[in-house]
Design a protein around this nucleic acid. Sequence first.
DNA 1: CGAATGATCGGCT
DNA 2: GCCGATCATTCGA
Length: 216
Amino acid sequence: MESWNLISKSFYQNEDPLFLGEQLLGCIIKTQINNQITAARIVELEIYKAPEDKGSHAFDNKRTGRTETMFKEGGIAYVYLCYGIHHMFNIVSGPEEMAHAILIRATEPIDGQALMETRRKIKNPIPALTNGPGKLSNALGIRTSMDGVKLYDPQSPISIWSDGQYNDAGNIIKSPRVGIAYAEECAHWPWRFYLENNSWVSKPLIVTYPSSQSSK
DNA sequence: CGAATGATCGGCT
DNA sequence: GCCGATCATTCGA
């Protein structure tokens, strides 16, 4: 709010989602729902690069009712339900017909922390508030009904801003993504980005990959 | 601690 | 019918 700059629509049209992922780390997600405002800084995300990425819902440019959102112009939200409970928030990027998406995995609260704690039914200010994709959506009030909203419109329920912090890409750690062991050779691509030494990053879950990762 | 499990539902075979 | 880009809770060592 103080000196935040709204991320422009053109920014999201970049054809390299890996580059965009680096730029989006440190940016701020703001939600305004029924005049209630919360904001949180992106500290961890994952790139899903269609069509070659077997971890993506849009692998091989597969179009379904659900994935259709990802084929639209960059700069909108892709929100889907996972395990029947969790609302997963992604940023669609690239031009129309390029189904790239960037999953936000963890955030650091900036504004409206008390409201986030109420939504999450959490008593104490602990990292569990927003250190996972399902957790942060719950805390920020993001739901599947917001699928397709414009992130570059300040009136949207979800918008993304920059305040100039964390612009230095030097402190970004890159590692394999979480929860996609089924994605064969794509499973170990280092497309999970997070800020080094940030205490709000999600727990580095131990994922069992098809036995071929350690020393080959 | 870690491992196992239940929750809960839309999308897809 | 089955299963997932997950999480909170329980159970056992």
